[in-house]
């Protein structure tokens, strides 16, 4: 059995989720030790348990150690069963992260599936719905991983209770995943709010207009609890998203500025893929045995993903730096 020291790289939930995905994809049992060992609340938390249980459900895995606070987990997958599934994440944990755990494994079955995920849809440290839908899923279309997503209800921290419906329709792969050019023509500011005054969104969009010259929209989303997120969509053949989240006591201007700074970095470096999308794309590309993109300085998350991928898959992944903050990432032998 494959044994992975989950303290590698950033040593958090990402190692767990990527290991689950690849274990299902390769049908290789995995034994994780030291899960989230160095965190203040070590081991599996509720949202991680939900991810483990969801993975267990779609492939009928034999699981040991799936208890709260456990730093050790054994996962023995069986064949992934495409179908209709519904999972709910507590504590407003990200539904999107659970989706990203299940989605590649379900796609690999080459059969349609239907996923309903409840929980957080706009969480810090996780891709928000718009990012997932337009930046991530749209790109994967090229690999034949066709999937539509519909946000029925937004889920913000701490109330949670959001809901996204995914329709997975695997196609024959049309193209390799290649994103090299940074032909960013224009952009749009998006201020997403629920149960909060519209003025917050207006102030956020003002910052974006001033800094980047982009127009903006305020979107009021149906949601159980209050919340605010600001996003900048950068338009090209497929869009990029830069997100930042409102918090109690944090100035609207500060929230918007964070997104602006991230966007500016990509524009300045002239890369095709931003830091966050890079660590999410690398996994489908590796599973698909090919692809390449340009991105900024590889983050710890990206390096962690590659570390875990290398344990499961024999696929070359290379970095080439061609400008100060511009890297080529090549997967497979292109």
């Amino acid at each position: 059995m494959l044994k992975i020291d989950a303290t590698l790289g950033e040593g958090g939930g990402q190692v767990l989720r990527t290991s689950l995905t690849l274990s299902m994809f390769t049908q290789q049992p995995v034994h994780l030790v030291g899960i989230r060992k160095k965190r203040t609340k070590p081991g599996l938390l509720r949202q991680h348990l939900t991810a483990v249980q969801a993975a267990q459900t779609i492939c009928n895995a034999e699981v040991q150690g799936a208890i709260m606070g456990s730093t050790e987990l054994t996962f023995r997958p069986k064949a992934v069963e495409p179908g209709s599934y519904q999972f709910a994440v507590g504590t407003a944990g990200s539904a999107c992260l659970v989706f990203q755990t299940l989605f590649p494994a379900l796609m690999a079955t080459q059969k349609p599936s239907n996923l309903v995920l409840e929980g957080g849809t706009h969480n810090a440290f996780a891709p928000p719905f718009e990012f997932l839908d337009q930046a991530y899923l749209q790109r994967l279309n090229r690999l034949g991983w066709a999937c539509s997503a519909r946000l029925e209800k937004a889920g913000f921290y701490p109330a949670g209770g959001g809901k996204i419906v995914f329709d997975l329709q695997p196609q024959r792969g049309l193209d390799l995943g290649e994103w090299q050019n940074a032909n960013w023509q224009t952009g749009l500011g998006l201020a997403v709010s629920a149960h909060l005054p519209a003025s917050i969104g207006i102030r956020e969009l003002a910052v974006i207009r001033k800094e980047l010259g982009f127009d903006g929209q305020v979107l009021a989303l149906p949601s159980s609890g209050p919340g605010n997120a600001v996003m900048i969509r950068l338009d090209g053949s497929e869009p990029l998203f830069f997100c930042s989240f409102g918090e109690l006591g944090k100035l609207a201007e500060t929230v918007a500025q964070e997104a602006v700074d991230a966007c500016k970095q990509v524009l300045l470096s002239q890369v095709a893929i931003d830091e966050h999308l890079a660590d999410q794309l690398i996994l489908p590309l590796a599973m698909n045995k090919g692809g390449c993109f340009t991105t900024t300085q590889p983050s710890l998350h990206l390096q962690t993903q590659i570390e875990v991928i290398r344990r499961f898959l024999d696929v070359p992944i290379r970095f080439n730096q061609d400008a100060e903050n511009r890297f080529w990432v090549e997967v497979g032998s292109i």
Partner: peptide
């Protein structure tokens, strides 16, 4: 009740 169900679908 509504908020409990939203925060804790497992409960």
């Amino acid at each position: 009740i509504q908020d409990i169900q939203s925060c804790a679908p497992e409960t």
